[in-house]
Simulated scan of single mutants.
Amino acid sequence: MIRFLALAFVIFLYACKTEQSETKENNSTIEENLYFGYKSPGMIPEVFIPRKSTSQDWKLGNADSFDMDEFYFTYTGNNPFEDPVVVYRNEGSYYRVNKYSFKHNPSDSSILYSRWNYIERTDSGWSKIKSLGPMFDREDWGIMVMSVSSKGTLVFDDHKSNDVIRISRIVDGKREEPKLLGEQINSGKWTAHPFIAPDESFLIWGSEREDGFGLSDNYISFRQQDGSWGPAINMGAKINSKLVENGARLTPDGKYLLFSRSEEKVREDGSTYWESTKYWVDAKIIETLRPEQ
């Protein structure tokens, strides 16, 4: 009975979201779908809060092998730079629901990465979640954010190893063992949340350093002609402040840079919490930071 109700609920949701999606596509532009009708920002960051929707654009994964033990939904609409995957897994007397935030390869939308896992697009939908293998699935690593370039290079952080960032390229068709990036990247405190440009021309991450504006700032390093990474450059007062800034990344079309700014606040009972606000700015701001060759 539980399985029947779950299946009925799934089919109902899928039908509703498909109808809503088709209606919206007929009445809005691609730009409105991507950025929720916001007027594009200039060189000064502006607050960007994706308007909540009822999860339109849901898609059913593995439709031809729908065994009710494990099934997936992928959807877009609430976040312009990640594709959430909702997993329903049969635990016997109930279904466990997990949400994974998968990053896509800019040149290959058939694979989505999330920490040490990935899923592949098939003729019938999305595959089951797969492991990247023992090089990544390690208990002594704490991967929070993984970024992938158009060449398949993976860059990820590790909060269990004194907050460092590692990189893994594909060399001669094979995935290489992840390596620590140099001191220009792995210096300071809270080094995390990396983003590698699709063409690997620059790398952005968050870190707290002596030359910063206060707490964690966004830093950028540009790829040099010899393939090495250049010095860390603080992204400046337009991007950073005395608060916590991190999580910078480009939108899929490369037009805008998004990042988060977090502030510690106090509740009435004296307890504290962190409130995060998303910002976006014209991606041309990156070129103003690039050193002259």
Rank of each mutant, 00 (worst) to 15 (best):
F73W: 00
D64K: 13
Y95M: 02
D108G: 01
Y75C: 04
F71N: 01
S114M: 06
G125D: 03
R115F: 01
H104P: 02
D57V: 08
W116V: 09
R115H: 05
D83G: 05
S109I: 15
S127M: 02
F102L: 13
R121Y: 04
F66V: 11
K59H: 06
D64A: 12
N78I: 03
H104K: 10
E46P: 08
W126V: 04
S93V: 06
K52Q: 13
V86Y: 00
Q56W: 10
Y94P: 06
T74F: 13
D69A: 06
H104Y: 10
S127W: 03
E70M: 04
R96M: 12
Y94F: 15
R51Y: 13
S93C: 04
I49P: 07
N78Y: 02
N98K: 03
V97A: 00
S93D: 14
N105T: 11
S124F: 09
D57M: 09
H104E: 13
M68L: 15
H104D: 11
D108I: 05
A63G: 12
P84W: 02
D57Q: 14
N78R: 01
F66L: 15
I119S: 01
P106V: 13
T122Q: 14
W116G: 07
V85I: 06
S110Q: 08
R51E: 14
E91G: 07
T76G: 13
S101A: 09
V85L: 12
F48A: 06
S109N: 15
V87W: 00
V85E: 00
R115Y: 03
P84C: 05
V87E: 01
F102A: 02
Y118K: 15
Y72F: 09
R115N: 10
F48N: 10
S93L: 10
F102C: 02
I49S: 13
P50N: 09
L112C: 05
P106L: 11
S109Y: 15
P106K: 11
T122K: 14
Y118T: 05
S101R: 14
S114T: 07
D64P: 04
V85N: 00
R121A: 13
S55W: 11
G77P: 01
S65Q: 13
P50C: 12
V86L: 00
E120N: 06
L112T: 03
P84D: 10
W116Q: 15
P84F: 07
P80I: 06
R96Y: 05
V87S: 03
N90A: 04
K52W: 06
P45E: 03
N117G: 02
V85C: 01
L112S: 04
K103I: 15
W116L: 14
A63E: 08
P45R: 10
I111G: 07
W58H: 12
E120Y: 04
N117H: 05
D108Y: 03
T74L: 05
G61V: 02
Y113K: 04
Y94S: 10
G92Q: 07
R51V: 12
